[in-house]
Write a protein that binds this DNA or RNA. Structure first.
Lengths: 199, 199
DNA sequence: TTCATTTATGACACATGTGTCATTTTTGTT
DNA sequence: AACAAAAATGACACATGTGTCATAAATGAA
């Protein structure tokens, strides 16, 4: 299997000219830039050293690459999100927003997941299952925090909870025009979401 | 010129099998679905009656079609937005949001405008100029209303105006999970934006 | 240096999308 | 029915992307 060098293992032969991680980083950038339909392996190869055919040593096709890319992105978010201390509900929501803002392209990227044809690739299918499952995990956490916030009487009741949640999640798409560093930016967004625009 | 039947003009010859409007409607749908890079004329022809080559009777290439589509969409929004009575500032903002929500895909669609290569088409270039100008017009209106709201002491001052504006504009992307009809939905969003999530 | 092993490569056959154009089809007029 | 005008069509040459495979290049070990 490629990209799996175990420490201490006896190794012979030529060294790969880029890592799996580099490949997936560039994939992420290109899918966000051109959309899933506009992304293709020739494009990817033009942003990597070496020939296009080399990519096929690592992945069978575009579907597998994008699925692996999505899996990697959501896994990283889940790792960070599950480390949050949920003792203080509102504090936890604030931190969660910070994580989502860091990966604000997550939603856009994963929006194309349904376009991936998995009929020809078991690997892509497995990766997308992980993505699906991760999506559920995040949703559960978000719902848990919001229900707790509601119980603690922290949320207004004249707006349905799903709308409050949708508004919260949608914050991550707000363009950071004033170019604040991420921690300050997410705090500002949270304040705006909490208190509203009116004085 | 095609698509320009003047009433009373003497007309002979075969009738077009679809209108410019139908073509642009389907273009909009497909560009939103597949992204600018994923959109192409074969795809478009598969969603229209008749052969792909017929499309070339009306537009020289993909660039001209998408540019015409964008121009048409923004023109429609501007027409509606300029009809707003701005006497009551907050009321006007509420109505503007309603219009933006109606055309919530506007932003996504126009986001691809910079990808269009205009070097080979004067028509596309002209249409994109109109789009650019329309964008400016909408921005001016939004800025005017926000400045007035600020003067009227309707907005909190501990959050920078561009952030409040960004947050307002970003409301249109909030997914309407509870499937409220548009007028009620935009009112709810406006309330949330105004008053915040906290009780 | 020679060898075994692993990765990289370019060429090839195939598939899909583009733009053009000579020809055909449709339609209203005479 | 014959004609003129406008639109539709399919075939063609070309361009771009895909997946495979035999071969070449690189690397560490013996």
């Amino acid at each position: 299997m490629y990209f799996e060098m175990l420490k201490g293992e006896v190794i012979m032969g030529r060294k790969p000219s880029y890592t799996e991680s580099e490949l997936l980083d560039i994939t992420k950038k290109l899918v966000l830039e051109h959309g899933y339909d506009g992304f293709h392996l020739k494009l990817l190869s033009q942003h990597l050293p070496g020939a296009r055919s080399t990519i096929y040593q690592y992945y069978a096709n575009k579907e597998e690459i994008v699925a692996a890319c999505m899996k990697r992105v959501i896994s990283s978010v889940i790792e960070k999100a599950s480390a949050i201390d949920e003792t203080d509900t509102m504090q936890a929501l604030q931190e969660l927003l910070g994580i989502y803002v860091d990966e604000s392209k997550l939603h856009q990227l994963l929006g194309d997941a349904h376009k991936i044809n998995t009929t020809n690739s078991a690997a892509a299918s497995r990766d997308l299952d992980v993505v699906e499952q991760g999506h559920t995990t995040l949703k559960i956490q978000l719902t848990r925090l919001f229900q707790r916030a509601q119980q603690e009487k922290n949320l207004r009741e004249d707006i349905p909870l799903p709308v409050l949640i949708g508004g919260f999640f949608n914050l991550i798409n707000t363009p950071n025009m004033i170019n604040l560093p991420n921690p300050e930016w997410s705090k500002l967004l949270f304040q705006m979401w909490i208190g509203g625009a009116q004085r």
